[in-house]
Amino acid sequence: MSMTVIIGALELGGIFAIMSLGLYISYKVLNLPDLTVDGSFTLGCAVSAVLTINGHPYLGLLVGMICGMIAGLVTGLLTTKLRIASLLAGILTMTGLYSINLKVMNDSPNISLFGFPTIFSSLSFLGTYTRFILIIMILVVICLLLCYFLKTYLGLALRACGDNEAMVKASSIDADQMKILGLSLANGLVALSGAIYAQHQSFADSQSGTGMMVIGLASIIIGMAFIKKDKISYQLIAVVVGAMIYRGILTIALLLGLPSTDLKLLSALLVIVALILTKIKMRRHRVC
């Protein structure tokens, strides 16, 4: 395996780690299965690509993230104020986003960014590792910010919401507000990841978000299987490590000759296997 392949896998792993951290907030912290992810990832891609073509790659990341947060806000409002089940609320937003994403991309199913300056090209003086260094830097900053945030009072209220809803309902925490906040934050991170992904691949596709929820879930489950600590800092590291391992497995599978069209099937199988393994482990634990 050549160095370029490894670095390439780590770069993608880093990008998807940002998305997985978003999913960690909705799936683990808030305990809400959020399917908006597939749509908000593409939304991030689309916004970032359009702004990059217009010469604003950095703005592309920022606006992409904000758009993702708005998507999360919509899902949050649907599930709290209109009392639609969170799973369905996510699917509704995701479906709606499909059309919106195409509108953002000016009705073309894909946009190529070749030849346009991206966040990576403007820092190319760092050499072959530019992409890798930049992605890792963004990832570290996000991890540190998240780790701090989840220990603040607001973060505690958010975590309590996913941990014991009955308690939160009887407390002075506005559970609806927390859910909306958490879903916005989660989808903001997912869209940011999509925005970086588009510039990294120099390509945005209206289908690129398909299966992202499963990838994020796989990263979380794999990571938590390896790092079994309850502390927030360890959990965040677990998610990042999980995303890297997941990418590693996919890269090896591709090198071994798996057609890239089978990747999604492999992703789904990986999640199933990981879930079964954790279940078996838990059962053994109980017997002991």
């Binding site: 701090y148 945030f149 220990k151 603040t152 009072y153 607001l154 505690l156 209220a157 975590r159 309590a160 407390s171 002075s172 925490i173 506005d174 927390m178």
Partner: peptide, 19 residues
Amino acid sequence: EENLALSACQGHYFRLKPI
């Protein structure tokens, strides 16, 4: 301590400060 911190808040949750 995290549980107690929540009950000490008295409704002022939008604070980005740790304990």
